[in-house]
Design a protein around this nucleic acid. Structure first.
Length: 612
RNA sequence: GCGAGCGUAGCACAAUGGAUAGUGUAGUGGCCUCCGAAGCCAUUGAUCCGGGUUCGACUCCCGGCGCUCGCACCA
């Protein structure tokens, strides 16, 4: 029987070469849509040109992908959906049949299950960070996106309410970069406005040089509170504070020097937080930067008759809109210039949108703030659209990424002016301390410096992940235990999976994610291997979902499930077995899982570690 | 008053109009002589109420109820 023995081996060898040479799409589901459309035409279905396959990733118990489109298509034409599905499936091109097991289920769903050989071909094709990046980079290739996030007020410490914008914004930046965009990170600081009159007023009276040297931002915050308390409405003190503001706006050297000092001190303090969160802005173009750019906004909005005078102020009504029309009980106009001639944040935001479009050539602008500013940004975007259309400026995509406010135990939003808010620095410190205690308990033999480093990654990661893993636009109540949880669907679980993977390669004395021995891999076989491989091949879908919707929690969910499949695989299938082909294919899975988890976690802004 | 967002097990969350609504945590019961138990396996438990659209609704529409927030010179 030598020939019978020989033939399959030859075929297998050819198969591998063939798989290596043929094009394997990064996003596998993308191949199904055109294939089903042409199958519908080839099957001669009535009105086949109108058929849309509606490809979705499927519940794993049904397969990898499913086509839902036959149901609606058949019903609308009084056809039997299962019969339609059968005609389409029969007409499917051979390439699809080679890659998938195809079945029809229930009322007419078409299910596609990737064949093990196709899974392996995909895993071989996307084996490096460069391959993943190249695969993902088509979505926003050649585009420039400006992301406006964090954006705290200067002269105040960041508190827990500032966390969400910073963490979500950074993850969005990384997702956009990964999908091919050139991203400009812009910190739109609140560094201009009436509060600086009060701050200078207070500074001149109560500044403590010693405190200013040791903890400047704390001292500035103290001074501002004093200044605010000392200048009640209609008081002569408030008039004095206003004079300070006018002096600043008129360029009085002493006032400008003070203002500059406040900004520098604040930025330095913010950067300490940003460093811990892995954030580095390209620009810190705060409101002050647009101070001399609002004049053009006024004249162009007036010239195009988009803005009008109302009670002495310059405002924009959107009469076609139910809420922003002048014809409502309590009109809510977009206030471009106040009656006293001063600019507000509407005018600086308009100037900002123009600057980002003209100077940065933005294709898209993303602003990350909590939902309370929803009306403002809706009005802003409506106004920008009319303005840019009237002046024939190119209109970028405008996105307001909202999220719920962080509230206290009473359900009320935390506010800076009230005492008792939790400082962001204190939160991060506490996170690291809790993580350090756990690391020390679990792994007391590691040197302290390494335990400290691990605690930073785990503790900060827990805080980041807590904010990223939920989509909710409703508020959430701040809780130390919730924010710093280290069990369950948390960063800890994902980092633990990463460290186990590193440990496997360490034990075998192979470089992390080693791919050298993969050619020896035998076909995927066990249930745990196949389940893990299927999950790995869904990475592109998770990226697409998260990047398209600007919702990082889709990526969190995917990574958590991937780590779960890995943990199950790790428990049931030993990697370091003696049979070389089995070991090779399991190491291939480990290598790819490590690559995917680390790539995904870095996209979320988390730092990964090799031991914990 | 007008409007927006939210309402899913005890608690905290998920579900791009699809199949038996998923997970964590807490509870219960198992699993370390064996690549790391910060883990794995099993199990109890839920869509605010009432209509509508759809072959199919947590999801879309209408009407209630509840919570949070926004509504002219603060940002």
């Amino acid at each position: 029987m030598p020939s019978a023995n020989r033939t399959p081996r030859l075929r297998a060898a050819r198969r591998i070469r063939f798989s290596g040479a043929m094009h394997v799409s990064f996003n596998l589901a993308a191949d199904l849509d055109p294939a089903l459309k042409s199958a519908a035409l080839a099957a001669g279905l009535p009105d086949a040109a109108a058929f849309t396959p509606e490809i979705r990733t499927a519940d794993p118990k049904h397969g990898d992908f499913q086509a839902n489109g036959t149901l609606g298509f058949a019903k609308a034409r009084k056809l039997n959906p299962r019969a339609v599905a059968e005609q389409i499936v029969t007409a499917l091109p051979a390439s699809i049949r080679e890659s998938y097991d195809v079945s029809i289920a229930g009322p007419g769903f078409i299910n596609f299950t990737l064949k093990p050989a196709m899974l392996l071909a995909w895993l071989r094709a996307y084996s490096t960070p460069a391959a993943l990046t190249a695969g993902a980079a088509s979505a926003h290739a050649g585009q420039t996106w400006v992301v406006d996030y964090s954006s705290p007020n200067t002269a105040k410490q960041m508190h827990v309410g500032h966390l969400r914008s910073a963490v979500i914004g950074e993850a969005i930046c990384r997702l956009l970069t990964f999908t091919g965009a050139k991203v400009i990170r812009d910190n739109h600081l609140g560094d201009w406005g009436t509060q600086f009159g009060k701050l200078i007023y207070g500074f001149k009276r109560w500044a403590d040089p010693v405190a200013l040297a040791t903890d400047p931002i704390e001292e500035l915050e103290r001074i501002y509170k004093l200044g605010h308390a000392a200048t009640p409405d209609d008081s002569p003190e408030l008039d004095e504070a206003r004079r300070e503001l006018v002096a600043l706006q008129n360029g009085d050297p002493e006032s400008v020097a003070l203002w500059k000092k406040f900004s520098d001190v604040s930025l330095a303090a913010f950067q300490q937080i940003y460093d811990r969160l892995g954030i580095r802005f390209d620009y810190n173009l705060g409101e002050s930067f647009y101070n001399d750019k609002v004049g053009r906004v006024y004249s162009e909005l007036l010239g195009t008759k988009i803005a009008e005078d109302s009670a002495g102020a310059l405002v924009v009504f959107h009469d076609e809109h139910p809420r922003f029309s002048r014809n409502t009980e309590r009109p809510n106009p977009f206030m471009v210039r106040k009656a006293d001639g001063a600019s507000g944040y509407a005018s600086t935001d308009l100037a900002t949108a123009l600057y980002r479009t003209e100077h940065f050539g933005a294709h898209g602008i993303v602003v990350v703030t909590d939902f309370r500013q929803g009306d403002h940004f809706e009005q802003l975007f409506l106004t920008v659209k009319k303005w840019f259309a009237a002046k024939h400026y190119r209109l970028p995509e405008l996105h307001h990424v909202t999220f719920g406010a962080v509230t206290g135990e009473d359900g009320k939003a935390l506010k800076t002016r009230d005492g008792g808010t939790i400082k962001l620095k204190a939160l991060l410190d506490e996170a690291e301390e809790r993580a350090f205690a756990i690391v020390t308990e679990k792994n007391p033999d590691l040197p302290e410096s390494e335990r400290r480093d691990i605690a930073r990654a785990v503790g900060i990661g827990a805080v980041q992940y807590a904010d990223l893993s939920q989509n909710r636009s409703s508020n959430y109540v701040f809780s130390w235990d919730k924010m710093l949880a280290l069990d369950g669907n948390t960063a800890t679980y994902l980092l633990y999976a990463v460290t186990r993977l590193h440990s496997i390669f360490r034990k075998l004395n192979l470089p992390a994610g080693d791919t050298a021995q993969e050619s020896a891999a035998s076909p995927l076989e066990t249930s745990a291997e196949l389940t893990l491989a299927r999950k790995l091949a869904k990475f592109p879908d998770a990226i697409r979902l998260a990047a398209d919707s600007l919702r990082p929690h889709f990526l969190c969910l995917y990574l958590y499930e991937l780590a779960g499949e890995f943990s199950a695989f790790y428990t049931s299938d030993k990697v370091a077995v003696d049979e070389a082909p089995v070991r090779a294919r399991r190491l291939l899975l480990c290598s790819r899982t490590l690559l995917t988890l680390e790539t995904g976690l870095h996209l979320l802004g988390l730092r990964t570690i090799t031991r914990m």
